[in-house]
Design a protein around this nucleic acid. Structure first.
Length: 638
RNA sequence: GCCCUUGUAGCUCAGCUGGUAGAGCAAUUGAUUUGUAAUCAAUAGGUCCGCGGUUCGAAUCCGUGCGGGGGCACCA
């Protein structure tokens, strides 16, 4: 005689055992129709789960996340079903729900083609139409292992072997086809709907380990309605339009080429952007008490051996042998160089904290498959700094850095930032006591920001705990940029020291810190965030002056010169094209401000302003224009 | 690095089953002198990614190398 408590606190009494579906029917017919899954005391179950005793029940429809995820999970199942119907002999492995969709990994010799994807999709629709009934059975472990092994499903058999003893081995049937699965599932394949699409095929290692064989992964997306599906596909299209590789080419910012994979050839405009960011950073760091230095790009192998990089990071390092047969490495990091600068002259506790910064260009031999436009390169410029301090100064220094980072992100248009805090990994150097201190100091700094943070247990570097700064862009994507890491290792290894108050020599703590991370990467993110339409102050080409006809060329040139004198960038478009053409061209090039000069402007010593993405025209006296836009050219105006 | 896929003019792309390449835009030249998102015409432009093979003949088929793309792994 179960009594069922609903989320609103109401109780339903039943005279016998009931299924989730019956509970839904009791509430309303439409709910029963829309119901996807239920949860019993917080645990998700199938709709036909038989409720025997008192419990609290929630009923989920496609409008709930739980319902939507079940739809996706079911879509993954019918994908596997369709594949095995079309390509007998293909083994199924795992098929989880992921953000916006699902995938399923298959073991099959022949690769799936784009054409196969279409066929599979058709077959999936057919399976939905067949409306196969779902049935759940609990099997004996050994029976299940034997069953799948006999079927030739060795991966499934391996998965069952991995299920802890005592846990149920549940098998789900959709008609005759069945699969090992935890569930829950929809009551029949017809309930999934047809708002899905297979999106791509790729390789994926069995159990995510590159030592294992490679499986074929089919990705798909699945939604509660056609409208949702279309909206999602539209979002993908929008993201594609913002792709920094595409915009970089269109806007003539940079290019890549075969001779140096993963290294950027910056063009004039891209480099202007780069320089603006560096100049901005330089001013910010100056104000924050940093000293900027510059250290060699090529350093003797001996130093890298001493620092530990040769051993731990060697396979990612470029090396170079000189005619005298010495081996040098091209720096993958700036830290050893900065410690060498620190080591010049005796340091006292009065010198701490000592903040050394460098826009250092580093080279890392990244795996070819990892390269991705500006976001993952082999040569990049870090806005790197190393702060040498005492243990007591860790918290306040971390907090300084954090505040600086947040402020800088805000200036660049990113207001939504979350933190990730990572503590000691299993393999690490240093005393546990020192780790305790470092971790709590860092965590204090995290808490002091009052920002949302997550803890990544055991994900810290081998030399110390770290904070990572994740910013969210205009279309909701997350990017990891800045970082603060405590280093309990390197200063000692490279003999850094200071004389403390009591006259004894101590090893300073070193904080690694990057704000943007990599300038290259950050610019990639900026391009995508703004879709190439940068705020005025960082726009690489801020104004184009357009004379209406040849008669006004001198006037236009003069205006352009004045703009440059006022510290903004400007060109004059003297090409033999009409005004419409030029406006279109420069608008597509995402120039923020177009200035039109004709008779009217000459007569009144003015310009007519047309701003990007607006067809309003504003006439303004030249000096006023210069004054107004000079102000806009400062960061604080954004 | 691994799996799949891809490489044709400055750019975007076409080129069926093998018969030494084509469009639009851009460029150049000329005409036009233009008031807020494409004025007209002419001209020029290519080692079809590199190397090797099959073939009478390869952009096209095969092998291989390099690069790009999508994932996986990697991102101390």
């Amino acid at each position: 005689m179960p009594t069922i408590t609903l989320p609103d606190g109401k109780n339903l009494k039943f005279s016998k055992k009931v299924t989730g579906l019956q509970v839904a029917e009791e509430i309303s017919k439409s709910l029963a129709k829309q119901a996807m899954v239920i949860s019993i005391n917080g645990e998700l179950k199938d709709l036909d789960f038989l409720i025997e005793s008192d419990c609290s029940v929630k009923i989920f429809t496609a409008k709930n996340n739980e319902g939507l995820e079940t739809i996706r999970h079911d879509t993954a199942h019918i994908l596997a079903m369709a594949v095995q119907e079309l390509f007998p002999g293909t083994q199924v492995t795992i098929g989880p729900v992921i953000e916006n969709g699902f995938y399923y990994d298959f073991a099959r010799k022949e690769p799936f083609t784009e054409d196969d994807l279409k066929k599979i999709e058709e077959k999936m629709r057919e399976i939905v139409d067949r409306d196969e009934i779902t049935k759940r059975e609990v099997w004996d472990r050994d029976k299940a292992i034997k069953h799948f092994r006999n079927k030739g499903e060795i991966y499934k058999a391996e998965l069952i072997e991995g299920i802890p003893k005592g846990e149920e081995v549940s098998i789900y049937f959709h008609g005759k086809w069945h699969d090992l699965c935890r569930g829950p599932h929809l009551s029949s394949t017809g309930k999934i709907g047809k708002f899905f699409k297979l999106t791509k095929v790729s390789g994926a290692y069995w159990r995510g380990d590159s030592k294992n064989e490679m499986l074929q992964r089919i990705y798909g997306t699945s939604w509660a309605s056609q409208k949702d599906l279309e909206a999602y596909l539209k979002r993908l299209e929008e993201a594609e339009k913002r792709d920094h590789r595409k915009l970089g080419k269109e806007m003539d910012l940079f290019h890549f080429r075969e001779e140096s994979p993963g290294s950027v050839f910056w063009h004039e405009k891209g480099w202007a952007l780069f320089q603006k960011l560096i100049n901005y950073m330089r001013a910010r760091q100056d104000a924050a008490g940093y000293q900027e230095v510059n250290t060699p790009e090529v350093l003797d192998r001996l130093l890298w051996e001493k620092s530990g990089h040769w051993e731990k990071y060697g396979e990612n390092m470029y090396t170079s042998q000189t005619p005298d047969e010495k081996v040098f490495a091209i720096k993958p990091m700036n830290c050893p160089g900065h410690i060498q600068v620190y080591n010049q002259g005796l340091k006292s506790y009065r010198d701490l904290p000592l903040r050394i910064t460098e826009f250092g260009k580093v080279h890392r031999y990244e795996p070819s498959g990892a390269l991705h436009g500006l976001l993952r390169v082999r040569a990049f410029t870090q806005d790197d700094a190393h702060i040498f301090c005492s243990e007591d100064q860790i918290t306040s220094e971390c907090l300084n850095v954090t505040n600086l980072i947040l402020d800088i992100y805000k200036d660049l248009g990113f207001k939504n930032v979350v933190l990730k805090y990572a503590d000691r990994p299993d393999v690490r150097v240093g005393d546990d006591k020192v780790w305790d201190k470092a971790e709590s100091s860092l965590l204090d700094a995290v808490k002091a920001t009052k920002l949302e943070y997550s803890i990544n247990k055991g994900e810290g570097a081998f030399y110390g705990p770290k904070i990572e700064f994740v910013l969210r862009d205009a279309i909701g994507r997350d990017w990891q940029c800045g970082t603060v890491q405590v280093d309990l290792n390197l200063p000692g290894r490279l003999n850094a020291s200071y004389v403390d108050k009591d006259g004894t020599k101590k090893v300073p703590v070193m904080l690694h810190r990057a704000l943007f991370g990599s300038l290259e990467r950050f610019i990639g993110i900026l391009i995508e965030n703004y879709a190439g339409k940068f705020p005025f102050w960082i726009s690489p080409l801020q104004t184009v002056v357009i004379p209406i006809s040849e008669d006004f060329e001198d006037y236009a040139k003069n205006v352009s010169e004045k703009i440059k004198e006022a510290g903004m960038s400007s060109i004059v478009d003297l090409k033999n094209h009409n005004l419409n053409y030029k406006i279109r061209e420069h608008s597509l090039a995402k120039i923020p401000v177009l200035l039109i000069c004709g008779k009217k402007e000459v007569d009144s010593n003015s310009v007519t302003i047309r701003r990007l993405d607006s067809n309003k025209q504003e006439n303004m006296e030249i000096n006023l224009f210069l004054k107004k836009f000079s102000a806009l050219n400062k960061v604080s105006q954004n």
